[in-house]
């Protein structure tokens, strides 16, 4: 009787170890799978983008940046997160080869920093999204200074955000719609300058 019990015990233990092991592997596989999918998508995307100039890369970035801005103006965490995910991909595939080496260095720093904020925006509650939108705005403003843009933009400033330290953002309209305060104070801020 004792012997049977022991055999059963050992067998169960082996089984459980197997299960946990495969579970852990399963988890790992699950984690890597979307990444490889993403890579395939990226390959396809970069093939498609092959003959596009980097100007379009920066306008894709600006488009998704503005989507985040509009979502934050409307207190819409979900849309901001979606655009954040797309923005992250835009930064990742941005082609800076047509710029001078100084500009490339600067762009590398900007993209490195901006990617992190885009990622945070893609999976955070709204107040944290706004924090990273502040960092992101600085990056995008500096990026546009290098890449230029076809769109007419307004560089706005809200003096109250972040304990009165203030924060900037970019908009396509002259009218102030504040992404940091949302519906609490939609009109807070002023135009600092026009970018064309």
């Amino acid at each position: 009787m004792k012997k049977i019990r022991m055999t059963v015990g050992i067998l169960t233990m082996a089984l459980v170890s197997l299960i946990t092991m495969s579970c852990k592997d399963g988890k790992k596989e699950g984690a890597t799978e979307p990444m490889s999918n993403e890579m395939h998508q990226e390959d396809a995307a970069s093939e498609m983008m092959a003959d596009n100039s980097s100007k379009e890369g920066s306008s894709a970035i600006l488009d998704n940046y503005l989507k985040i801005k509009n979502a934050l103006v409307a207190d819409n965490q979900e849309d901001a997160a979606k655009a954040g995910g797309m923005l992250f991909a835009d930064f990742k595939k941005f082609d800076k080869s047509s710029y001078s080496s100084d500009e490339q260095q600067e762009l590398t720093d900007i993209i490195e920093d901006a990617k992190e904020s885009a990622e945070h925006i893609s999976d955070s509650p709204i107040e944290h999204q706004r924090e990273h939108f502040d960092i992101l705005s600085k990056d995008v403003i500096d990026m546009i200074a290098i890449t230029g843009t076809d769109q007419k933009l307004y560089q706005d400033f809200c003096p109250m955000y972040n304990d009165n330290k203030g924060a900037q953002w970019l908009s396509t309209t002259e009218e102030i719609k504040n992404p940091y305060m949302g519906s609490k104070m939609p009109g807070c801020g002023k135009v600092q300058k026009e970018i064309k």
Partner: peptide, 18 residues
């Protein structure tokens, strides 16, 4: 980290602690 990232990290450090 580049100066830009240091700046961003410090911004996050400060607000996270605050």
């Amino acid at each position: 980290y580049s100066d830009r990232r240091k700046n961003s990290k410090l911004r996050s450090i400060i607000s996270q602690i605050e």
